[in-house]
Simulated scan of single mutants.
Amino acid sequence: MKNRLLGAICLSLAASIWGGMYVVSKYVLDFIPPITLVWLRYIIAFVLLFAILKIVQFKTKSGGAKKGSRDWLLLAWIGFIGYFVSITCQFIGTKLSDAHTGALITSATPAFMIVFARFILKEEFTLKKTISILLATIGVIIVIGWDIDLGSYFVGSMILVGAAVTWALLSVYVKVASKRFSSLETTTYAIFFALIFTTPLMIWELQANQVTYNQEPLILLGVLYLGVVSTAGAFFLWNKGLELMDAGIGSLFFFFQPIVGAFLGWLLLHEHLDRTFFIGGLFIITGVTIATFQKNRNTYKSS
């Protein structure tokens, strides 16, 4: 139970950080193209995480787990499907739609995670998980509402669906990797591979688009926030949380994103919060609580 509570804290913090990321991303994307911004996130995150990894290995006098070709392929796959495809789709989708639409569509991620966890990790699809996902989904719908016109953002919406599916797949394979490597190793090397995959597209984007170099402090702070907090910090917390919990249960913490996003909109942008925010938030918290304290009947075995 102690590990599960720690995992719940890590996942809650990661989802909360991402909840405030849409506002920052939307602002910075007005000045920096999406793929270039993803690349900047990764170069900052990788340098920071690699330095921390080497310090930890030096202090513990450990070189990390020995990795064979299958291990490197697993880390490359996580970097490709999650940190390259999913995050790129998220940024492009947000650029072509809006933050509200992005929050609504990507909230479907937990449902995909539970399905993938059932078939890949052989996790049980219990009644409590079903009740939890239904309660949390209802809560998201209440908080965000359906007052958006998906038709006006059709291309962006489809790209955001792709982001939700691939992030769910990433989370399941992070659980697989947790049986072989530490969360810090998985996060660091997966981001390294994502950086490699992103670099050619970043170069093409900069050649195809005229970028105005703006030295406004808010842009620099936004990029640093996305690299250090939303990438290095939140990715590690998410992977650590999934290491300590079933992927199906951990998926529910993704629903904290719209709560935090709406709250920060009220706090920083003076947006209005009505009773639906609190009612929806109660549904989400209830669903997550039920899932967190259910008996662990995970049948997943490391392959």
Rank of each mutant, 00 (worst) to 15 (best):
A163R: 14
I141Q: 06
G64F: 01
L206R: 11
G68T: 00
F253R: 06
I259T: 14
G68S: 07
S303N: 15
V260Q: 06
V24W: 10
S107G: 13
E216P: 00
F116I: 09
L267S: 03
T188S: 00
T101C: 01
L127W: 13
F256N: 15
G79C: 10
I43N: 02
L282C: 05
L40H: 06
F58I: 09
R297E: 12
T137N: 04
K61G: 10
Q57Y: 09
K67F: 01
Y173V: 02
V229T: 13
L218C: 15
F278K: 03
L160R: 05
I92E: 11
L252H: 10
V161L: 06
T212K: 15
Y300C: 15
V115P: 00
A190F: 07
F91S: 09
V143Q: 05
L150S: 06
I35W: 08
D30I: 06
V229C: 12
L201D: 13
K240N: 15
A232G: 09
T199R: 05
V28N: 01
F80Y: 10
H272A: 13
V223S: 04
K301V: 04
M113A: 11
Y42H: 00
D274C: 01
V211Y: 14
G93S: 01
P258F: 09
L104Y: 06
L29P: 03
I55Y: 12
D246V: 10
R180M: 05
G145P: 01
I284N: 02
F293Q: 00
M202V: 11
A108H: 11
F112M: 04
V229L: 11
T106N: 14
M202N: 06
L244G: 04
L37G: 03
Y153N: 08
A14H: 02
I279C: 04
I78Y: 13
L104W: 07
V85H: 03
I55G: 05
K59E: 05
T198G: 15
K122V: 04
A14T: 01
S107W: 12
V38K: 14
Y42I: 02
M1C: 11
L226A: 12
L73Q: 11
I142E: 04
K2I: 02
L201P: 12
F154E: 00
S182H: 02
A234D: 07
V24T: 09
A234E: 10
L127I: 13
F80G: 04
I148L: 09
